[in-house]
Amino acid sequence: MNRTALVAGASGLLFGAGLAIGGMTNPARVRGFLDVFGDWDPTLAFVIGGALIVMALAWPIQRRMSAPLFTGSFALPDKSDLTPRLVAGSALFGVGWGIAGLCPGPGFAALAIEPAKAAAFVAAMLAGMVLARLVAGRR
């Protein structure tokens, strides 16, 4: 294991714990958050808020660093164009998120909670990713 993989593993561990504690691995709670016109459950607003507060502090630190702590250089997205593909893809994702109350992170994390259904979700998600490569090309 190199240092990048160790950092990524530690990050994934923390991320998965945060998802489970925050209720994101419970699809009923996620759908409750999206049910703003019905029986709204605001819990996820606190999850998103907590994560945004920490990351809002991390970005200014990143801008002052010339390189990451444990690897050679930063590799961050630099695209700024708003494309139909960005919006259409995000809309499709949102429909899927609303149907089952799962997005990618909780899908993987839930393998430790509801293995059969989480595995089915992950398998279908990978199939969708293959489909994306077929319709939009390799990237």
Partner: peptide
């Protein structure tokens, strides 16, 4: 779950 999974995989990669 299966329908949502395909939409999530396709949508997040396109988006």
């Amino acid at each position: 779950i299966l329908l949502a999974g395909v939409l999530v995989g396709l949508g997040t990669r396109l988006g």
